[in-house]
Design a protein around this nucleic acid. Structure first.
Length: 947
RNA sequence: GGGCCGUUAGCUCAGUUGGCCAGAGCGCCUCCCUUACAAGGAGGAGGUCAUCCGUUCGAGCCGGAUACGGCCCACCA
């Protein structure tokens, strides 16, 4: 086959093959087509970033499942898409704006900023799709979705409306995680903790009598000792890592059982700097008596724990916000108003020092929450946010997993899902951003002072459209909230005319991601897609978003569709670098899949990643830096080498098949080798099916690899080479070679689609008819992507052939071993006498040409009771002894023999020990005891022959 | 602090319900550019399965404890 190059060059083939599939509309799904539905929706990559290896493994595995399902004749759909990634994307564009034009979003305004982000999205969204294509992804691009597209917008509004109607959405004042830089709240899940070196400041708060206030009055007279009830302190020492927050202190808490302080409960302290009296309260939950002074400042508006104290105190202490949204001290901070938080801290410490109220400052290390997006420290911040009430949604979502309606692979991951959902913590869904789905609520304030407290939910109908109004009047505020379903701008305008204002916030990105499986299929419309493919078959994802995403999809699917979004959740491992660290841009250890595709090919990348897809939680990929600064890894050699092997073996097969005219199949003429390779093929199909149904991609790849390289290339092709050249069996072995290559390509196609498709085309050209009637299916498709998945056919398995061929392999290896150890030239045959009992001798004689060919030897005689040949090299394989003539070399021989004797002696004593153990012979299964006895006999016999 | 995972050859990982001498790829050693493939072929060396205790006739696998590493969640002013 001279028209195929000797080394496989992926870059010259992959783009053409991909075009072939696109031109054939091979990825395009049609709900009207026959076949059981099979559907996967892609975990949409964030539009902010280029794909990395984590995406590459995830998408490769989805493509494998998609291609297998398609070959199995299922009506298969893989839905691609991209996530708008609210905070992340807006942050990137804002950063650019700042760097390039020195402008903030406020300079630009809402509409202009959103327009900019859309521009940015067009550019980078396409790049991600291109990357997916280079991976070979067989997704239906005509169905590509974006979490901010029109359909999603409708789905989001419909869902929100339903939740609002059901009373599951409420507005609440809550302490949220505030990102000062981006000026938005972020969820707990968007925070990472970083250890920061700071100080612990010990501040004196003078204790004052509980005299009615107006002015901070007299300090209690005291003795100097701080111990005991009789020796009462004049001040409390409060330790804090955030001195500036004392401006918002509204109490000091002590433990009610603490004898040092419980006498002070009900009294007050004078808050330094602001000279304000604040109460001393008891709180056994917040205060740990063992820690520090036993006194804790309480800043409800700026600390989650203190906020909890405020709630427990039931309005008996104040809650004072001292920050502006951009992180400055507000008017409540008195003289500090206007200072940024860092400056305020500095000034507060200075002033305390000046007043002698700073007892000490000591170095301290603490974990501080940082925003994942802006990388700045988050601020607990009191603000009004929309929440989703989780309990009613979580309960059914817990149930479907507990009852195995949704199964996780590996199973253990269900635990994380269950424990997270079990907490049922309400979900804050509003984000103070402009990029995202705007909250579909219109608000009109009500003067709370004139009305009685109320919280009512009413339905109204305007021109056949239901809208929901919620009226809330509380002590400090009152408002009418109206939620309008999608598609009624006229109604929106009417409310706006009445003074209703649409909420400026947008929804958490995960709100739209949660709807992904049904919204991409067309919901809220009852589309044919939705009918055909919902619930989807399997979700393939990483374990890091089991809570963020998987759990929310299950809740949303059950809520909107009344059915689970997918049957299986397959968790793929996370790829770490060689040191076990997560890949990231800042660490510089990330590997770009496109770099790998450029230098190794898409198939090589996919094959290596598939091999790595084991059940462990992480896999390591040793990373190497190239001269040009890019990262790569030797691991991908494995994939490239395999592709090259497939290429060359196929070249060989194709060249021969082109020369050999087909003749009718004659099963009677099949040799043990033929039967063996067909049996091995069947086992491989079986193994691949089992691995795939357990989502064990590594085992699937290994089964195919071992069959193709080890069995087919190393043994079968080598074995049939002489017969392929000439002779009566030429056409028969050609048939089997064609059939095994055909099935190898089918089995491997989902993993390495490009090269297999390319070879398939050649094979169809050279050998259009290559099945074995009634046994192995014939070619039915000019494109491999549409070819049928191999069937397991038990008629072709043969334990006998496998057993005999294994014996022959062992014999051949033993002979090769002798050749190597005695350093016989590769081309020089050695002549042998073999001592073998009846059955084995018959097999050896029947396969004499095979053995002589593969071991480069000449078998002179084979018999049962051969007298050891003097002046010969000895070897053994199971029950056969091999004598290689004229190779005597006393030294080598002695070494080999004594080594073998040693092995046998060790084995014999172990086996004897086992058999002399009465409880073994009594309790172990009979066949094992028998096996042990046989082994002992065999070892003893061989030892005897060696003496 | 709570939970999950890992520890098997120099490296990266398999090892299915406990049962022949614990496997693969890469790397290493010897030989071979043999007419599909040197990105290859033939052969080989290399492991007290983290440690300890237990269950069992029998443990890499089951139970308990310890050590080290990773991740998730909650976080002490």
């Amino acid at each position: 086959m001279t028209d195929l190059p000797k080394t496989y060059d992926p870059s010259s083939i992959e783009p053409a093959i991909y075009k072939l599939w696109l031109d054939a509309n091979a990825f395009r799904a049609n709900p009207a087509d026959p076949g059981q539905p099979y559907c996967i929706v892609i975990p949409p990559p964030n539009v902010t970033g280029a794909l990395h290896l984590g995406h590459a493994i995830n998408d490769t595995l989805q493509d494998i499942l998609t291609r297998v399902a398609r070959m199995r004749g299922m009506n298969t759909l893989w839905v691609p898409g991209i996530d708008h990634a609210g905070i992340a994307t807006q942050a990137v564009v804002e950063k650019q704006l700042k760097e390039k034009e020195n402008k903030t979003r406020h300079d630009l305004g809402r509409e202009a900023l959103v327009a900019r982000i859309w521009q940015w999205k067009e550019q980078y969204g396409d790049r991600i799709i291109e990357q997916l294509k280079r991976l070979g992804s067989s997704a239906d691009w005509s169905r590509t979705r974006f979490t901010l597209d029109e359909g999603l917008a409708r789905a989001v509004r419909q869902t929100f409306f339903k939740l609002f109607k059901d009373g599951l959405i409420y507005k609440g004042k809550r302490l949220v995680n505030w990102d000062i830089h981006l000026q938005t709240s972020i969820s707990d899940d968007e925070i990472y903790h970083e250890t920061v070196k700071t100080s612990l400041w010990h501040i004196k708060y003078p204790i004052v009598d509980d005299a009615p206030s107006a002015r901070g009055t007299g300090i209690l007279p005291v003795s100097s000792s701080a111990h005991g009830q009789d020796a009462r302190a004049t001040h409390m020492v409060i330790a804090t890592t955030r001195p500036e927050t004392m401006l918002g202190d509204t109490a000091v808490a002590v433990h009610p059982d603490d004898p040092r302080w419980n006498w002070a409960i009900g009294k007050s302290v004078l808050l330094p700097l602001l000279n304000k009296k604040i109460p001393i309260v008891a709180d056994p939950i917040l205060v740990n008596m063992e820690f520090g002074s036993g006194c804790v400042k309480v800043t409800p508006a700026h600390d989650p724990n203190d906020y909890a104290v405020w709630q427990r105190q039931n309005g008996n202490i104040d809650i004072i916000n001292i920050l502006t949204p951009d992180g400055r001290i507000n008017e409540n901070g008195g003289p500090y108003a206007g200072l940024k938080r860092d400056a305020a801290r500095k000034k507060v410490v200075e002033d305390l020092t000046a007043q002698g109220l700073l007892e000490k400052e000591e170095p301290y290390e603490t974990q501080i929450g940082h925003s994942d997006r802006s990388k700045t420290a988050v601020e607990p911040y009191l603000s009004e946010q929309w929440f989703v009430h989780m309990a009613p949604l979580a309960e059914p979502a817990l149930k479907v997993v507990r009852e195995n309606k949704i199964k996780f692979f590996p199973e253990r991951h269900a635990q994380q899902y269950l424990s997270w959902l079990g907490e049922k913590r309400d979900w804050p869904i509003s984000r103070q951003l402009w990029w995202g789905h705007r909250i579909p609520i219109w608000t009109k304030e009500i003067d709370a002072s004139t009305a009685a407290p109320i919280d009512s939910l009413q339905s109204q109908t305007i021109r056949d459209t239901q809208i929901i109004m919620r009226t809330v009047i509380a002590e400090d505020r009152g408002a009418n909230y109206v939620c309008i379903p999608p598609g009624h701008p006229d109604i929106e305008k009417e409310f706006e005319a009445q003074g209703f204002i649409q909420d400026p916030d947008v929804l958490d990105t995960w709100f739209s991601s949660a709807l992904w499986p049904h919204s991409t299929l067309g919901w809220p419309d009852e589309t044919p897609d939705l009918k055909k493919w919902y619930p989807t078959s399997v979700l393939v994802t990483g374990r890091d978003i089991i809570t963020l995403w998987v759990a929310r999809m299950v809740m949303a699917g059950l809520y909107n569709m009344g059915d689970i979004p997918f049957h299986h959740v397959a968790i793929n491992p996370i790829i770490l670098d060689g040191k076990g660290e997560r890949m990231s841009k800042s660490k510089g250890n990330g590997v770009d899949p496109v770099d790998i595709i450029d230098s190794y090919g898409g198939d090589a990348l996919r094959f290596t990643l598939t091999q790595m897809a084991t059940e462990t939680q992480d896999v390591r990929l040793p990373v190497k830096k190239l001269a040009d600064g890019r990262n790569t890894s030797d691991k991908f050699d494995a994939g490239r080498n395999f592709a090259n092997k497939l290429w060359n073996a196929s070249r060989f097969a194709l060249a021969n098949l082109a020369e050999i005219a087909p003749q009718p199949i004659d099963e009677k003429s099949w040799s043990i080798t033929d039967r063996w390779i067909l049996s091995r093929l069947m086992r491989t199909i079986q193994d691949a099916d089992a691995a795939l149904s357990a989502y064990r991609f590594d085992l699937y790849a290994k089964a195919c690899y071992d069959f193709f390289w080890r069995d087919l290339c190393d043994w079968y092709i080598e074995a049939i080479k002489p017969e392929l050249k000439s002779g009566p069996r030429q056409a028969q072995v050609a048939h089997i070679l064609a059939a095994t290559l055909d099935h190898s390509l089918r089995l491997l196609h989902p993993i390495i689609p490009f090269i297999t498709e390319a070879i398939w085309a050649k094979l169809c050209e050279v050998r259009p008819e290559r099945g074995i009637p009634g046994r192995i299916m014939a070619c039915a498709s000019p494109l491999l992507i549409h070819a049928a998945w191999p069937h397991f056919n038990d008629d072709l398995t043969s334990e006998g052939a496998e057993h005999v061929f294994t014996q022959l392999q062992n014999l051949i290896i033993a002979i090769r071993n002798i050749r190597n150890e005695y350093k016989v030239d590769q081309k020089t045959p050695i002549s042998l006498s073999i001592s073998a009992p009846g059955d084995s001798a018959r097999q050896i004689l029947a396969n004499q040409p095979l053995i002589e060919n593969l071991a480069t030897c000449k078998i002179v005689e084979v018999k049962a009771d051969l007298v050891p040949i003097p002046n010969s090299a000895r070897g053994s394989a199971s029950n056969c002894d091999i004598y290689a003539h004229n190779l005597a070399n006393a030294e080598t021989q002695d070494q080999r023999l004594s080594k073998r004797r040693e092995e046998l002696n060790k084995q014999i004593s172990a086996l004897r020990g086992r058999l002399s153990n009465e409880s073994y012979t009594a309790k172990a299964p009979a066949h094992l005891v028998k096996q042990t006895q046989d082994q002992l006999a065999e070892a003893e016999a061989e030892l005897a022959r060696l003496s």
